[in-house]
Design a protein around this nucleic acid. Structure first.
Lengths: 233, 233
DNA sequence: ATATTTTAGTGTAAATTTTACACTAAAATA
DNA sequence: TATTTTAGTGTAAAATTTACACTAAAATAT
């Protein structure tokens, strides 16, 4: 059994993992993608996707790899959140975890199971299950970061489909910021930034006046950013 | 020689270190505390203080311990900055570093040497030496964070003495934000927050009108924060 | 075909905040 | 007593934020 332990060092080393907080959004709710653990510890419990960092990859690459392996998600906005290192956070021993959060289009990713995950599923962040490890703490921090960040970086668009209505956009902000926003003032503010492209398309088969579709002008945003433009809501 | 490697694991593990970016301020400049490396790699080069994380401490505790050991600094504001994990960042092998930044009162801490550090010294962040490892990258990120953070959190006061004049405070903001600020507007804004306590004391032996001293009302800030108050400059 | 239901879409006036700007006061020194 | 130097103060214009209510258009029910 001891023979298995073939990687030896002069000083003890913690294990290093990543955890991913993947946010999604549908019209009514902010959601987080969780996987049901297929192995111990916490077998059967819901947890954030993640896993051990390999020696030939950065933590960010590791997070993206695990994200893809466990959920099929790739090519998404991902950002380092925080590194968690409490001594007792993992019953297997000393494990330090670098957490990343990611915003994806919910509809594009049907939850799928793989590897260590018996199944993956979207949960409302407000009514999710209790989580393994210190993942509730990690989720809380991710929510806090998202709430702060969405006001001055146009990351919210990552959560919406390519095309969206103004009402959908406003609703996203209302749900994440947990406040209601005046419709006219919100539109004025967004319009003035001039970062939306109005599409030649409207809603269809809605039992009310059909709303115009817009898309986010990412190219223009990046240009403006370079010149010191400040997105702020 | 192989006998020394007595900590063995089933899978390879990166080493984990911390690095500290310690900012200080004097009337004319933002400074960073660096140590001259006493051992290889990069022996003789300037670097951020830091070192390996122990198994019985969190990364934050490790950062504080190293900070104290190498510079004598303790009981200061410290905040996690970012975790750096590029594969080639350390010639000794795979080393992941959790960086913290800290704001201290420059005058309170005479640079002192210890441990692996032949000597420690304050440098202007604008005219520092080239640094070991990826520490220039880390420093750049810390500066960026400081610049962003100082606008909406009253962390700048950590850099000043207990008592300070309005001009000193303004100068701090001007140096960190790299912009000039209108004196009257700045005073108006700060005064309105009502977070400064005017002391019964003035400058002495200055060849001009003596300025009043103020101190930061930390207690009041904490109270107001709980009620949702927003510091913002 | 007409009325009903439902959400889209729009403008203005008041309040607040931000900005630009220049002189007098006080301390030490010459 | 004059000079030098920084402290300390107010106001008006511009810009931004806020509060607020009705018409338009699509589908469905009658």
């Amino acid at each position: 059994m001891e023979k298995e332990n073939k990687y030896c060092y002069k000083y003890p080393r913690p294990a290093v993992t990543t955890d991913c907080i993947i946010f999604g959004f549908d019209e009514s709710d902010l959601k987080v993608l969780l996987i049901e653990r297929g192995i111990e510890p916490f077998k059967g419990k819901w947890a954030l996707p993640g896993g051990f960092v390999h020696m030939d990859e950065t933590t960010e690459e590791g997070a993206k790899r695990e994200l893809f392996e466990e959920t099929g998600i790739k090519d998404v906005y991902i950002e380092q959140l925080f590194t968690f290192s409490d001594l007792e956070r993992d019953p297997r021993g000393r494990v330090i975890s670098v957490a990343y959060f990611s915003l994806v289009q919910l509809n594009k990713y049907e939850a799928k199971a793989g590897d260590d995950a018996k199944r993956a599923k979207w949960f409302s962040v407000k009514n999710g299950p209790s989580l393994a490890f210190d993942h509730e703490k990690i989720l809380r921090m991710a929510l806090y970061r998202l709430k702060g960040k969405i006001r001055y970086q146009p990351i919210g668009f990552e959560l919406l489909s390519e095309k969206f209505t103004f009402t959908e956009l406003q609703h996203l902000y209302e749900v994440i910021l947990e406040m209601s926003i005046d419709k006219r003032n919100f539109r004025k503010k967004i319009q003035k930034m001039d970062l939306l492209i109005e599409l030649d398309e409207k809603q269809e088969n809605v039992a009310h006046k059909a709303a115009k579709y817009y898309k986010f002008n990412k190219t223009k945003y990046e240009e403006l950013s370079l010149k010191g433009f400040n997105f702020e809501i």
